[in-house]
Design a protein around this nucleic acid. Structure first.
Lengths: 134, 134
DNA sequence: AACAAGCTTTACGTTAACGTAAACTTCCCT
DNA sequence: AGGGAAGTTTACGTTAACGTAAAGCTTGTT
């Protein structure tokens, strides 16, 4: 049997934890990315919601739009019985992977360039700061 | 002496090469990221402009805003004589590096997850497509 | 000369992802 | 009972990064 942790969160909890506003969290719900249950009017978030929030924020750091992240959620939740469904899924996955690999390359290049710049700065700084030693 | 390649481009050239609209290129200029010279009314782009365009697009793939990319350009072009200037530069560089390293981690995690998902798809696909072989 | 292709400026429109304000309920505290 | 803290809905505002006309130059081609 599943040990379904009965851990829940309020919207304020999550907002504080992830350092975002409650407005954002409600907006993500509005866009269909999260579906907290209600206790009367009040939203109650569970582990799954929390994980999704984390994924949304990771997506944002990678420049994903909310709808892109939504598509990824659909992939994970999708009906995995139809063969054609599975195939289109694999196409989408391949596409995302290609994007990410491109980003990986971009980042590596940029990090190299920043390192070069940094080193150049350090050198001229060293040359400027200690001219007395000559 | 520098062999300054006298290679130039029209706005249409660059738009085609990078698969963007001329509108975008003019917009980047408007934001101060490129400064082509003029032949009468017409914009003439040189190698430096082209490189900048490439950097802008790489920045976009990494989720950088245009003003962030602009800041990076400033860093590269900055006056590298003042010590305090150099130090604030190094702070900014360190910040960017931290961001990029975070992105690097995010990407690696996401790629792993996508690979898992892909593999799971392949397995169920294989199980569904070839049930005759039993 | 006329016309198309490619360039220009000006300017209003659009989308995503929230920010912000107003007005209301619910619960807890003293 | 009165207030404050945290939650709610509704709705208009905002910013970035262009899209999309509209109207006009310029240059080569027919």
């Amino acid at each position: 049997m599943k040990t379904t942790n009965q851990v829940t969160y309020s919207i304020g909890n999550l907002a504080k934890e992830f350092d975002i506003t409650t407005r954002s969290i409600r907006f993500y719900e509005d866009q269909g990315l999260i579906s907290p249950v209600r206790n009367g009017q009040t939203r109650i978030y569970n582990q799954r919601d929390r994980v999704r929030l984390k994924l949304i924020l990771r997506g944002k750091r990678l420049g994903f739009s909310l709808s892109e992240t939504g598509r990824l959620f659909e992939l994970y939740d999708a009906d995995r019985t139809s063969a054609t469904q599975l195939e289109t899924m694999m196409v989408l996955i391949a596409q995302k992977k290609a994007d990410l690999n491109q980003q990986l390359d971009d980042i590596k290049i940029m990090l190299m360039e920043l390192n070069n710049l940094e080193q150049s700065c350090q050198e001229t700084l060293a040359a400027v700061e200690q001219p007395k030693k000559n």
